[in-house]
Amino acid sequence: MKTALFPGSFDPVTKAHVDILKRSVSLFDKVYVGIGLNSTKKPFITPEKREQMLKAVFADEPRIEVIAYEGLTVEFCKQIGAAYMIRGIRTVSDFEYEKAIAQMNHALEPEIESIFIVSKPGYSSISSTIVREILKYNGDVSQFIPKEALPFL
């Protein structure tokens, strides 16, 4: 069984995340959406609410499972039996950042392959960071967030 992990903070989940997942799910038998818990970051949305949000967004996709984790992502991949790690690329700077992480992950765990999926042009400007800033000032984020996620904000 081909299993992949799509790790991220998903704080909050955006339409860009959904696009990457929908385009990648056909490549694998199972895709875990891993909510990485980073002790050095103060989240905007609680991990529990992010998990509920993602489960609502992907309720109709049986091959996607949402789960939170802490620690090294490659170790979590081994724990869930994922041989692939999916990463979305929006910009050249994303590529440089993700390439460095992929190379370090490969050094730590050579059997886990990083798969880069380039975002559609219409989603390249959408980031959770920008969406959080809009939310902070009570702006309308409905064009950037999947409709199933809006009730959780």
Rank of each mutant, 00 (worst) to 15 (best):
I45S: 00
S114V: 08
H17S: 03
Y69L: 05
I101G: 07
K55E: 09
A82R: 00
Q52Y: 08
E98T: 09
Q79W: 07
I20M: 02
R23Y: 03
S9N: 15
Y123R: 08
M53E: 07
E98V: 12
A59Q: 13
F95P: 00
S125V: 10
Q103D: 10
T46E: 08
S114P: 02
E98G: 03
K22T: 13
F44V: 07
R63M: 03
F76H: 00
T73M: 13
R90V: 04
H17N: 06
I67C: 00
D11W: 00
V18K: 03
S39G: 15
Y84S: 11
D60M: 14
K41M: 01
V57S: 02
I112C: 04
R63V: 07
E96V: 12
I86K: 03
H17P: 01
P110Q: 08
P12E: 05
Y32T: 01
L72V: 13
N38M: 09
E65M: 08
T40P: 06
I35M: 12
I101F: 09
V74M: 02
F116R: 01
Q103K: 09
S39F: 15
A102N: 09
K22V: 06
S24K: 08
D94N: 13
I45Y: 02
P43F: 11
R23N: 07
V92G: 11
A16V: 04
I35N: 05
I35T: 04
E75Q: 08
A56Q: 09
A100P: 05
K15V: 10
L108N: 05
A56F: 05
S124H: 10
P110I: 06
L108P: 06
E48G: 10
G122S: 15
Y69C: 02
F95Y: 10
R90Q: 11
N105W: 03
S39E: 15
I101H: 04
K15A: 02
S119C: 15
L27E: 12
L54W: 00
I117F: 12
D60K: 14
S127I: 06
E113G: 04
K120P: 01
I86S: 03
V66H: 00
F58K: 04
P110E: 04
F44C: 07
Q103M: 08
V25E: 05
K99G: 02
K15M: 14
E51P: 08
L108H: 04
D94V: 05
Y97P: 00
S119D: 10
S128L: 04
S93A: 14
E61K: 15
D11V: 03
I101A: 11
H106S: 15
T14D: 12
P110C: 14
E70N: 10
M53P: 01
S93Y: 07
A82K: 03
A56L: 09
G88S: 13
S39Q: 15
E113M: 07
K30L: 13
L27G: 07
S9K: 10
G81F: 03
L37P: 05
A100S: 12
N105Y: 05
E113C: 05
V57E: 00
K99D: 11
